[in-house]
Amino acid sequence: MNAFKELGKYSSLLYQALRSSTEFSTYRKNLFHELVKVGYDSVPIIILVGIFTGSVMTLQSAYQLQFAFIPLSTIGAIVSESILIELAAVISGLVLAGKVGARVATELGTMRVSEQIDALESMGFNSVSFLVVPRVLAGVMMFPVLYIVASIFGIGGGLAAGYFSGTVPPADFLMGARMYFYPWNVVFGFTKSFVFGFIITSVACYKGFFAKGGAEGVGKSTTEATVLGCIYILLADFVLAALLL
């Protein structure tokens, strides 16, 4: 029963956000700030995640296939396709659920419990348009960009790890990556990152916007936003794979 109530409140907030999205002048400034915070500020962690994911995948694939009589280019194919289809979007999503989701829920939760949202409403602002719309828009706009960054650095990291460890020469790695490259996989990864961006920011906005109590309430809403963001990413990953592959 409670879950249905929560779903109803979440849907209602999204509906309000959709209706408020026409009030561009209200959220224009905030949208720019959020694009920077969600996108630009996340680039370093995404590069790090990409490089290490690609590197570890290459080393582990080389280890697992060391006694198999298959061409080394296969490792390049495995790493690049895994990154494009799954890892760049999902691992980035999980990391960003912590970084972006926690920040958004904490910001809005603090604003709620310190009456800043009430103050906005009292001044005649549409608080959903002012606070929720720019954050969700920044999520759906910047996560696909971060997916591209994660993919480039993931494949680059895999290539570098193969070269420096002496397990896969770059020419073989790239040959395998090119041979098994399907543009649809990029479209699929791109779609996933778009959906994950929406899930993480909208869930975090919902949890923060309706936070109750003091510091404890904000902490609870932040934890729930992060945990639920991660769970919904995994569920959405499964659903999208079942629908689109």
């Binding site: 310190s114 800043q116 009430d118 409403e121 005649g124 602002f125």
Partner: peptide, 19 residues
Amino acid sequence: QRKLRQRFGVLFQGSALFD
């Protein structure tokens, strides 16, 4: 209602300043 609220000024208990 939003226009109406602009006719009111509100001083909140915790001041509700944007931090």
